[in-house]
């Protein structure tokens, strides 16, 4: 299988704190990898390193075979990103936001196509023409999902993507991730949601104080066992 995301002895030191302690990881196309961990465990640092927003202290991050640190702009062609709290341009409508971000990614969609992405992400059609400034967090999150999906990236980096979504929307999002996975997208998701991780994940990693302390295949255990294991590591 094709490796779309890879970390080799990836380290990040912030002044006197080692935020990431030599991460080794591979993500294959079509795989959903869920990274569990408490706040400050190093999940967002890992995502920021893959996005090229910060430079590694040692080691290297790769997206689609390209080293991120030396191909900061190029690797963006292969990845899409959904942050924990999607913030958009408040004076533009949902549709205009999606059109803008899609154009920046090189896709010039027609209005109907954009509407389809928004509706598939769960945004009500009538909300698409309203300015984002009046959107709820969940609605913004849905536009963020549409932006990521419309990019047709090989790798999807998700940082607590279901934060702010209602259960129905979260469920629809899980279905969407599975669809994307089947289509060959490699998905790397940092999350606190153990049950969602078990539900959609192919593998689960548990991160503690910048270290990947366990790596599990979700098929090997149920959600309760995973929760127990996770809590054991956290104490």
């Amino acid at each position: 299988m094709e490796i779309v995301l890879e970390a080799k002895q990836l380290k990040k030191q912030y002044q006197d704190k080692l935020a990431l302690k030599g991460l080794d990881l591979q993500l294959q196309a079509g795989e959903i990898f869920c990274l569990l961990g408490q706040n400050g465990a190093g999940k967002s640092t890992t995502i920021n390193l893959f996005l090229g927003f910060i430079k590694p202290t040692a080691g290297a991050a790769f997206i689609n075979g390209l080293e991120v640190a030396t191909n900061v702009t190029k690797v963006k062609e292969y990845l899409a990103y959904i942050p924990e709290n999607v913030m958009l341009y408040p004076n533009l409508t949902g549709l205009e936001n999606l059109a803008l971000f899609s154009r920046l990614a090189g896709f010039d969609y027609k209005k109907e196509e954009l509407m389809q992405y928004l509706v598939e992400a769960g945004l009500p059609a009538e909300a698409a023409a309203r300015r984002v400034g009046a959107y709820s967090k969940g609605m913004r999150q849905k536009v963020g999902i549409a932006i990521a999906v419309a990019k047709h990236a090989k790798v999807l980096l998700l940082d607590e993507p279901t934060s702010g979504l209602d259960p129905k929307a979260s469920n629809e999002f899980s279905e969407l991730l599975l669809r994307l996975s089947k289509a060959g997208t490699g998905i790397f998701m940092a999350t606190h949601d153990i049950f969602r991780a078990k539900e959609v994940g192919t593998r689960v990693g548990i991160m503690r104080e910048g270290e990947l302390v366990d790596l599990l295949a979700t098929s090997d255990l149920n959600a309760n066992e995973l929760e127990k294991l996770y809590l054991n590591y956290m104490h």
């Binding site: 927003f53 900061v72 702009t73 942050p83 913030m87 958009l88 971000f101 990614a105 980096l157």
Partner: peptide, 13 residues
Amino acid sequence: TGTLKLLLSQGVS
């Protein structure tokens, strides 16, 4: 707001 990260993740330098 965090839009900069979203903007840059689209491949904008």
